[in-house]
Design a protein around this nucleic acid. Structure first.
Lengths: 199, 199
DNA sequence: ACAGTAACACTAACGGTTAGCTTTTTGGAA
DNA sequence: TTCCAAAAAGCTAACCGTTAGTGTTACTGT
C-alpha cells in the first residue's frame, strides 16, 4: 500500500489525457455547447462516471492545464531572488502568461471560451481562486510583512492585470499601462510594524 | 398597442416579487441546495416555466436586487459634482454598499451565499459584469479622458475593494487600506493627450 | 498465488433548464 | 359592448450535467 510503482499511474494519466484531448477536439470541431458529456465519453471510449472521476465538471475539461497558472504566479513570489522587488517579479510572470495565451496557436481555444458564457463564468471563478492562492503566498512571505488585506488586494490587482491585458488590443501595451498602477498601489502599503505604524 | 397602462405591469411585478420572496424564505429556512426549483414554484403557486420567465436561473433568485449595485456605482461617476475628484466619489459609494451588506439584518443571506459554491461563483461573474458597466461609465466621462485599459483596470480595482472589504474582519479598516492603493494607482494614469504623451 | 485497492463500468436517477403548445388574462379598437 | 392580438401563465415532456449505488476488472505489494 505504498506509492504505486508506475503502470497504474501511467494508465490513469493516459485515460485522463485521452478524455481531455477528445473533448477539446470535439469542442473545437462542433462548438462547446453542441457537444454533450455522453458524447465525449463515448468518443473517448470511457464511461460517463469515469470522465467525472477525472474532471470535476464539463468546463474543467477545457481548463485542464490551468493549475499551471496559479503555480507559476506563486513560484514567482516564493522563488524570486533574495531582496528582488516583488512587483517586477510578478510582472515578468504575468507577461509570460499573457504571451502564452495570446499566441496564435491558442486563438481557437480562446475564441471558443469567449463564445460560451458557461466557460467565461468558470474562468472568472477559477482566476479568483488563483488570486487567493497568490494572496496566501504573499502573506506567507517573511520579507513582505503586509496585512492580509494588502496581500489579497495586490493578488487581485495582479489577476486583473492578466485579464485586462489578455482582452486588450495590444496586451503588451496594456501591461505597460497597468503595472505602473500596481506598482504605485503597492508602494503606498507599509510593512506591519513600520515607523508610521505606532502599534 | 401603445405602452401598457399599468395593471398588467403591476401584476407581472407582483408575480415576480412573490416568486423572489418565496424563494428567499425557503432558501433561508432549509438551505439553498436543499430547495428545488419545482418546490419554489409550487410554494409560490406558479409554473416552473413562469418562474424561469422572470428569473434567468436559480441563482438569480437570490441576487434579485443586484442591478442596484452596478447602477449605484455608475451614478457615483456620472452624477458627481463637476470637478469633484473621481476616486473619493467611488469610495463613498463603495463604503455605503459595504455597510449595507454587512448590516446585521443581511447576515443570514450572506451566510447562505458563502455556503454555496454555486452562489459564490455566480456572484463572482456578476461583479465582473458590474465592473464592465463601471468601466463603460468611466470611459464615457468627458472629464477623465483615460484609455480603455485604465478605465477597465480602475473599475476592477474598485470591485476588488468591495469584495475584499466585505470579507475582511473589519470592513471599514480594510477600505482605509485599499482606497489609498487605488488612489495611488489612479494618480499614475494620465489623460490621453497629456503633456507626457507626445502623440 | 493472493488480498487489497484503485480504476473503471453500468444503470438509474436527480435537479436545473428549455421547447412546444394550450389556456387565461388584459388592453384597446370596432 | 364585443371582440381581437398580444402578453402572461400553464402543462408536459424532455435534455443535459452530475451523482449515488453497485459491481467488475486490473494492478500492486506481500
Amino acid at each position: 500500500m505504498t506509492v504505486p510503482t508506475g503502470r497504474r499511474e501511467r494508465k490513469k494519466a493516459a485515460t485522463r489525457q485521452k478524455i481531455a484531448d477528445t473533448a477539446l477536439r470535439l469542442f473545437l470541431e462542433r462548438g462547446y455547447d453542441a457537444v454533450g458529456i455522453r458524447e465525449v465519453a463515448a468518443e473517448a471510449d470511457v464511461a460517463v462516471t469515469t470522465l467525472f472521476s477525472h474532471f470535476a465538471s464539463k468546463e474543467a475539461l477545457v481548463f485542464e492545464q490551468d493549475q499551471h497558472f496559479a503555480r507559476s504566479l506563486v513560484r514567482a513570489v516564493t522563488e524570486r531572488a533574495p531582496h528582488e522587488p516583488l512587483v517586477p517579479a510578478l510582472r515578468r510572470e504575468i507577461e509570460a502568461l499573457v504571451r502564452h495565451c495570446t499566441a496564435d496557436e491558442a486563438a481557437p481555444v480562446w475564441r471558443m471560451i469567449d463564445a460560451s458564457p458557461a466557460l467565461r463564468s468558470y474562468e472568472d471563478s477559477m482566476r479568483l481562486r488563483h488570486a487567493e492562492l497568490l494572496a496566501d503566498a504573499l502573506a506567507a512571505d517573511p520579507g513582505l510583512s503586509r496585512t492580509t488585506t494588502a496581500c489579497r488586494t495586490l493578488a487581485r490587482f495582479v489577476i486583473d492585470a492578466y485579464t485586462v491585458a489578455r482582452e486588450a488590443a495590444d496586451p503588451q501595451a496594456a501591461l505597460d499601462e497597468i503595472f505602473p498602477m500596481i506598482e504605485a498601489a503597492w508602494a503606498v502599503t507599509r510593512p506591519t510594524g513600520s515607523p508610521a505604524d505606532p502599534a
